[in-house]
Amino acid sequence: MAAGGDHGSPDSYRSPLASRYASPEMCFVFSDRYKFRTWRQLWLWLAEAEQTLGLPITDEQIQEMKSNLENIDFKMAAEEEKRLRHDVMAHVHTFGHCCPKAAGIIHLGATSCYVGDNTDLIILRNALDLLLPKLARVISRLADFAKERASLPTLGFTHFQPAQLTTVGKRCCLWIQDLCMDLQNLKRVRDDLRFRGVKGTTGTQASFLQLFEGDDHKVEQLDKMVTEKAGFKRAFIITGQTYTRKVDIEVLSVLASLGASVHKICTDIRLLANLKEMEEPFEKQQIGSSAMPYKRNPMRSERCCSLARHLMTLVMDPLQTASVQWFERTLDDSANRRICLAEAFLTADTILNTLQNISEGLVVYPKVIERRIRQELPFMATENIIMAMVKAGGSRQDCHEKIRVLSQQAASVVKQEGGDNDLIERIQVDAYFSPIHSQLDHLLDPSSFTGRASQQVQRFLEEEVYPLLKPYESVMKVKAELCL
């Protein structure tokens, strides 16, 4: 049975990233139509530049190519590739079939990587351009969430054990800070992308030097003109047959890092959902379990974690691919890159769409948070109580021993009897502590235990987050809708 299948058929496997999760716009960027249309555009740009620099290419040939950029006979191309065992030459023939007058000058002087690699770089750039505003929107939604809850005390956790208090907004800023680093890295790697350009079979530009009869300047002009037509500021000066596969490492490393950030955020949300302090959106008709109707599973956060793990592992592909590119190139890269580049971007696209949807509907339960604080705060307040007693004339050592005994009794009630923490009640009825009984409410005010959390939130948002989001103001209103 021949390899390949009808990918629109229910009898043929289709990647869930495309069929179930990723956005239509990201799927289109990695589609065959987008790819092969870009090949034709690159052939047109090459012909236009070659004509401008004096090669015998007519206006009629150029116009014929322009008129057929979208006229792609995919069936013919597939048949040609089956016959020739070469995808680029299959599309040269297919393009030439609908451009008979231009057929002889299509791909003039070029090698397969002229269309293959340059198209990949265009796709990487455009895919990054799709991700950047999506990530900015996630940051914006979380920034709104953090600002609104900047002063809401909550129990902090280290080692997932109760620690000092923080605020809900401050905790959210930990998430935002990681995503801001990801946004900066995505922008950097996007701006650092260079075009492969017009380089020939081993990167020496020998074929173009021959076409222009040894004119170095025209060869350099050709490279520059096509690079500018493709919208790049610069091209690699040095290439082998391909652009260095280190570029793929750079791009997928940034995406993998984004995956790590999203995994951490969504894990926190899942843990908070278990504590009943916070939940992701839950639709009115949504079913959490087929057997347990009360369940409210954090399905979206779980999906993000599941896909983020996949995204983090994909960076190993370009690392290994770059390491086995012998001399000017081997074909070890080809099949692998067809999979890992598309999957990385479709996965990143999915987790950003999902995280935006989550961040637009996060639900906080202040009463649950308050109750958990009441359970733990008495123990945390013991040092403040000791200091207040010393100020009232008591002995630190005597007070410490009193607190120690009462704390152990209260802990026994919590752990052995399943009761509430009654340390404060014990202190309130103990005559030894009568000098500070009137101060206990103040000493137990949760806001006095959150330090500068709310001020940190305000400063972080104003100095770091809002300036970073400013270039994306025009796209901030787009909502994230999930079908599944």
Rank of each mutant, 00 (worst) to 15 (best):
P133T: 13
D349I: 05
G116K: 02
A344G: 13
I386P: 01
V413G: 08
I249K: 04
D117H: 03
L222E: 02
E48K: 05
C304V: 12
Q439G: 10
T201G: 07
Q416V: 07
E81C: 00
N384G: 05
L423W: 04
V315F: 11
I176G: 03
H217C: 09
L272S: 13
L275R: 09
R337N: 00
D333M: 01
N384F: 05
H159G: 02
E463I: 08
V247K: 10
G156P: 03
Q61V: 08
H263G: 07
I351R: 01
K35M: 11
S257T: 08
D333F: 00
P318T: 07
A22G: 09
G5A: 10
R452K: 06
E481M: 14
R459N: 15
Q458D: 14
R14Y: 15
R196S: 13
L108P: 01
E81V: 00
N185G: 11
Q241H: 00
R303N: 04
T242S: 07
P10N: 15
R196V: 11
S261T: 09
L165C: 05
C27F: 10
V475Q: 13
W45H: 12
E283H: 13
R372Q: 05
S306T: 01
E250W: 08
K477D: 07
M380L: 08
A47E: 00
P10G: 08
H400Q: 03
I369Y: 03
R426S: 09
V478D: 15
D144S: 15
F212R: 03
K295T: 01
L461P: 05
T347K: 04
M476F: 15
A18V: 13
T166H: 07
K415G: 05
D441Q: 15
K246Y: 02
T111K: 00
F379Y: 03
Y432F: 13
H310Y: 07
R296E: 05
T382R: 02
I237T: 08
S289K: 01
E79M: 11
P16K: 10
S447D: 11
E228A: 09
A291N: 03
L183H: 15
G231T: 08
S359P: 10
F157I: 05
S412H: 15
A230P: 00
F36D: 13
E213I: 15
S454E: 14
L331C: 11
P16M: 15
S412M: 09
L183E: 08
D422T: 12
E213T: 15
S31P: 00
G116W: 02
Q397D: 11
L183P: 04
S112K: 03
T354P: 07
C172A: 08
E148M: 10
Q408F: 08
F208V: 06
V262D: 02
G231A: 10
W39M: 15
T382F: 03
T239D: 00
I373D: 00
A2N: 15
V324D: 08
S447G: 12
K218R: 13
R33I: 10
K224Q: 07
P16V: 14
P24K: 12
L84M: 07
M316P: 04
L131F: 11
C305G: 08
D6Y: 09
G393P: 04
L252T: 13
T321L: 10
S434M: 12
S257F: 07
E463K: 09
S395G: 11
V115C: 10
L135P: 07
Y13I: 10
A102C: 12
V226R: 01
V29E: 00
A411D: 03
T111G: 02
A291E: 02
T354N: 09
E60P: 10
Q205W: 00
L186F: 12
T38I: 13
K170V: 01
N274Y: 07
D441F: 15
I369A: 13
M292G: 01
V92I: 06
R338K: 05
Q455F: 15
L271A: 05
T350N: 13
E25W: 10
A49I: 05
Y466N: 10
G116Y: 01
R141Y: 15
R194L: 11
N357E: 06
Q375P: 04
I269R: 02
K218I: 06
Q416Y: 13
L209Q: 13
L209A: 14
A273E: 10
Q456T: 05
R194P: 10
I176N: 07
A392C: 11
T347E: 08
P435F: 05
L53H: 04
L179S: 06
Q455P: 09
Q416E: 10
F236N: 06
H310N: 07
E25T: 12
R396D: 01
I436N: 05
V168F: 05
Q408H: 11
E417M: 10
E79T: 14
K367V: 02
T330L: 02
S23I: 07
Q375N: 12
E80M: 10
F195Q: 02
S261R: 02
E280V: 00
D129G: 13
D87F: 00
F379D: 03
V457I: 12
D248H: 04
I122T: 05
Q408S: 13
T354Y: 05
Q458E: 12
A18G: 15
I106N: 03
F208I: 11
E360F: 05
H400G: 02
R404G: 08
S151C: 09
D11Y: 09
L468K: 15
S290C: 04
Y365K: 05
E50T: 09
S448V: 14
Q458A: 13
S253H: 10
L331Y: 07
E220Y: 08
Q221W: 15
E383C: 05
L319S: 01
S12W: 08
Y243N: 08
T167Y: 00
L314Q: 11
V92R: 01
L443M: 08
